[in-house]
Design a protein around this nucleic acid. Structure first.
Lengths: 112, 112
DNA sequence: AAATTGACCTAGAACATCTAGGTTATTGGA
DNA sequence: TCCAATAACCTAGATGTTCTAGGTCAATTT
């Protein structure tokens, strides 16, 4: 394991939204693993960050949740994107891209 | 003015370090303006964020400071990168690049 | 003389993430 | 059978950064 970076404030929501867009529904633990594996372990979300984030997003109407049974036969809470969540995802993505571009511009400008 | 994005937690330090690397020394207001103009107004740092950040960085030995006189004949506090600050800058830059890449990977993976 | 600008400052609010705990139930091994 | 490990969830409080919203002082402009 090379190193794992802390999640930057404001990006977790994007990561969750994007992750949830890959399936009809996923439960928390799955989301956690998917974030980790899809980034080859560079991004690791703590459970103590993820669950509150999911609750916040549900409260804001970005997600719906219902209990079900996981692959391994255990009780699990399945989350789904709402229409609002999908719109938010698009916005979060462009905001992130804009931010990255702006930082890139500054870094480039500093080379001169 | 299209829109200005909030500074994401953890990135201000990188922005300041990079900005200071463009000159021997700069004072706070200059740093503020440089961040804004080099990103075409996309990133705007509030004074209430900048000054505490500069103080933190000085305390950590990343910067030194001394009072002088600005272009416009006003009292101003000039900051300089220390050797430690320069090292920190390199690290902050690669961390940022790694982070961006990881998020990019996740977003790409979500397209499948 | 008054208003604006330049430059600096701080206290407290807001907010998200992490730390560090805890719960329950199932599975696997000794 | 019993115990440990795993899966899955949860929350309270600590931490740390940024923003809001003020304020000061001196020089320039009106």
């Amino acid at each position: 394991m090379t190193k794992s970076l802390d999640i930057m404030q404001g990006t977790l929501e994007l990561l969750i939204l994007k992750t949830l867009s890959t399936a009809e529904s996923m439960h928390g633990f799955e989301i956690l693993r998917w974030i980790q594996t899809s980034t080859q372990g560079v991004l690791t979300v703590e459970e103590g960050s993820l669950y509150p984030a999911l609750h916040r997003m549900q409260n804001r109407g970005l997600l719906t949740a219902e209990f079900g049974v996981s692959d391994k036969g255990r009780r699990a809470k399945y989350y789904q994107l709402t229409t609002k969540g999908r719109k938010r995802m698009v916005r979060a993505e462009t905001d992130w891209a804009d931010y990255v571009q702006a930082v890139g511009q500054l870094v480039e400008a500093a080379k001169t």
